[in-house]
């Protein structure tokens, strides 16, 4: 789906809710309007702050055949903070719309064994070395995003809320690098000149500058209320577009942000 359409739909729905609240009252009185405006933010409105940590990865959808094994995986400590507001559409607070602002990091460190993994290594002097690597690859990802999630919220009962929707993210800080080890590179094609990398000889790569500045995706989650104010949350988020720029072909498959967020929150 077209990105602009998504944004438009989100924006329109917010406007529609606001407009709906306004057209309910036909009296053209600024004072009443002002009250309605205030009521919109006070009645049937919930505010939350929440914190989570993330487990996940920048992972291909379906492990491509180039990856022969994942030898180690470390999610690292990836944290997120969010403030959001939920506008309940009815007085029984069954359905609501939630808009948030979130600061989050997404990352992981992995070691994998690959066979014929197409790659390109670019030195800081601009030297380009292309080829197919067979051997070990270590990858470290740590990206920080400013995210705006928009969700529909459904209250199952007094203790449970579930929600789902879309998010847009802007990249603030980025790391996507690593090195290759214990293997060999074939220059340009699988039949090109063969160079061994053994022992202490590792060749680094850094794709940080290729991390996409804009992300969008979907999230689904659930909240369990521990008491009047505190709740626990679990949420799954999935990025629709790849972590790296589309025209970047040093990695032959697209990788997506797929994360499980677990945390707690406080509802005012």
């Amino acid at each position: 789906m077209n990105l602009n359409k998504i944004i438009l739909v989100c924006a329109l729905s917010i406007v529609a809710i606001t407009a709906n609240a306004q057209t309910n009252d036909s009296i053209n009185n600024t004072k009443i309007e002002s009250n309605q405006f205030k009521e919109f933010f006070t009645q049937n409105m919930d505010y939350q702050v929440r914190a989570h940590f993330s487990i996940g990865g920048s992972a291909p959808l379906g492990i491509p055949e180039e990856i022969r094994s994942i030898d180690s995986y470390n999610p690292g400590l990836q944290l997120g903070l969010e403030a959001n507001a939920t506008k309940w559409l009815t007085d029984d607070k069954q359905w609501g719309v939630r808009l948030g602002l979130r600061f989050e990091s997404k990352g992981m460190t992995t070691k994998a064994t690959v066979k014929n993994y197409k790659t390109e290594v670019i030195g800081d002097g601009g030297e380009r070395v292309k080829g197919y690597f067979t051997g070990g690859v270590k990858t470290k990802v740590r990206n920080t995003y400013l995210t705006v999630p928009v969700s529909a919220v459904y209250k199952i009962n007094e203790n449970w809320n579930v929600y789902g929707g879309l998010y847009v993210s802007a990249l603030i800080d980025k790391t996507f690098d690593g090195y290759v080890y214990d293997g060999y590179l074939r220059q340009n094609t699988p039949t090109g000149e063969k160079m061994l990398f053994e022992g202490d000889n590792t060749a680094p790569y850094d794709f940080s500058n290729e991390v996409r500045k804009f992300q969008w995706g979907t999230q689904v989650g659930a909240e369990w209320k521990m008491n009047k104010n505190f709740f626990l949350l679990g949420e799954l988020s999935y990025g629709f577009n790849g972590v790296l720029n589309k025209d970047f072909d040093a990695i032959s498959f697209s990788m997506h942000n797929i994360y499980l967020n677990l945390g707690f929150g406080y509802q005012f």
Binding site: I63, P190, G234, L260
Partner: peptide
């Protein structure tokens, strides 16, 4: 949630590709 994550990541290692060299 774990099951959802599990399904997402369970895309298991594919059969080894034939040699390209």
């Amino acid at each position: 949630l774990l099951a959802i994550v599990g399904i997402t990541f369970s895309s298991c290692i594919k059969d080894e590709a034939l040699n390209a060299e």
